[in-house]
Nucleic acid binder design. Sequence first.
DNA 1: GTCTATAGCTGGATAGAC
DNA 2: GTCTATCCAGCTATAGAC
Lengths: 198, 198
Amino acid sequence: MPARKGNPGDPTTRNALLDAAQHVMCTEGYAAATTRRVASEAGVNSALVSYYFGSLDGMFIALFRRGAERSFERLGQALGSPQPLWGFWDLIHDRSNSTSTMEFIALANHREVIRDEIADYSRRFRRAQLDSLTQVLQRYGVDPDELPASVVILGLSSLSRFMLIEEAFGVDVGHKETEAKVEDFIRRLEGERCPSPT
Amino acid sequence: MPARKGNPGDPTTRNALLDAAQHVMCTEGYAAATTRRVASEAGVNSALVSYYFGSLDGMFIALFRRGAERSFERLGQALGSPQPLWGFWDLIHDRSNSTSTMEFIALANHREVIRDEIADYSRRFRRAQLDSLTQVLQRYGVDPDELPASVVILGLSSLSRFMLIEEAFGVDVGHKETEAKVEDFIRRLEGERCPSPT
DNA sequence: GTCTATAGCTGGATAGAC
DNA sequence: GTCTATCCAGCTATAGAC
């Protein structure tokens, strides 16, 4: 189950390295996440990246997995809440995940191990979404021929990611209207958004 | 109007360099598009990258602009055709542009000049889409309060890009159904897709 | 225009001291 | 566990020959 090789070591330092890697990656792009840069951001020596993760690839995979596990947990919570559609929309519409996802996609373009990792995770994630939202929509009386759960999932996910990317560039033409339409749609099925009691 | 600096030089070599850059970028990621790698792919010496574009950034900008100009032309053709919605959908659903767009977005994350370039272009592109599709939808009798042109544009663009990215990873759960729904939507407004006479 | 050569960096990974 | 020191590879950009 380890990313590749590397030592168990001190989880504090290990996490500090992953935190640093995430930060550098999101603010300056994956190419800036070098061993030296990440280690210096974490306040430790660059040799520790090899020690903990075996290689840079190992570090990226460990980072991706950590994020994926967190996302998967949050997906479960969102879909199990009293307002699964609102929960889902809020989850994928979370800005903090978007940048890092984009970087991993670009990274995957030329690192095979990363690509495989993301593909696996995406399928698992999508399956969970489909299983859950199929039941939810049925409960709401939505005709699955008229509007399949897969279309709802892909529609919400893609709109959310697209707008987040554009906003990162300072482009937001038409976003207000589109967001309003999405929220109208959810509201019709699930009622007004209630603040989560957590 | 030049990207930055650089010499006019031989347009054949210049284009060969841009072609090579595009190829390397799409197949191995932007980080692989180094002066040496690109020049060697183009069959010339790496010093020519500096000669033609002044710097690597200059090369990326020149490459982006070349692609943007082509896309802008094609957008005009698509939106001016007898079936603007089909034309638009086919244009954005073109696989060959998707990879390169993704790389530029990632690149922009840590190269300011690239980010500015993309932001400018995106706004211009969106404006043209909005101006044109607003009229088209009106002609089709679509109520702009019910379904604003901006929502149609963002919806189609985001779905298309999202699915193309996923397919690049070998993930296509739910794509068939979603594509079918999109095409139903266009068909209702614009009729069966007619093969372009060109 | 296109080349060779090179200066000056920065990178990943590892050996070995502590 | 964490460090220093180091090897070697690869990069950008430029000077100058042809």
